[in-house]
């Protein structure tokens, strides 16, 4: 049961990481990279300064998840790493 709950941890990270890379790069970025002001602030800048804290909040949730679900921190690491170099080797 436990392992089943822990396994998506790394997958979740990969998804968020890729999402992050996509969201701050072309072409996604192009959506917000417009020469207009929203609330008096250029949209591009507003996008970054809102998106950035949001992504940090996601990491914060991730770290809370780690506290809740891995008391002995070796455990998730083991599981995760089993996964990872299975693929890498």
């Amino acid at each position: 049961m436990k392992t089943e709950r822990k396994l998506p941890l790394k997958d979740a990270w990969v998804i968020w990481f890729i999402l992050g890379v996509v969201m701050i790069n072309y072409p996604f970025l192009h959506i917000f990279n417009k020469d207009i002001l929203v609330f008096g602030i250029p949209l591009t800048i507003l996008y970054f300064y809102i998106g950035w804290p949001v992504s940090i909040f996601v990491i914060y949730l991730f770290s809370i998840y780690l506290v809740r679900h891995s008391p002995e921190h070796d455990a998730p690491g083991n599981d995760q790493d089993n996964n990872s170099h299975g693929g890498a080797a």
Partner: peptide
């Protein structure tokens, strides 16, 4: 922003 993104990976 780069370091913020890579921080996702730190636990691993």
């Amino acid at each position: 922003l780069g370091p913020t993104l890579i921080a996702f990976s730190w636990w691993f």
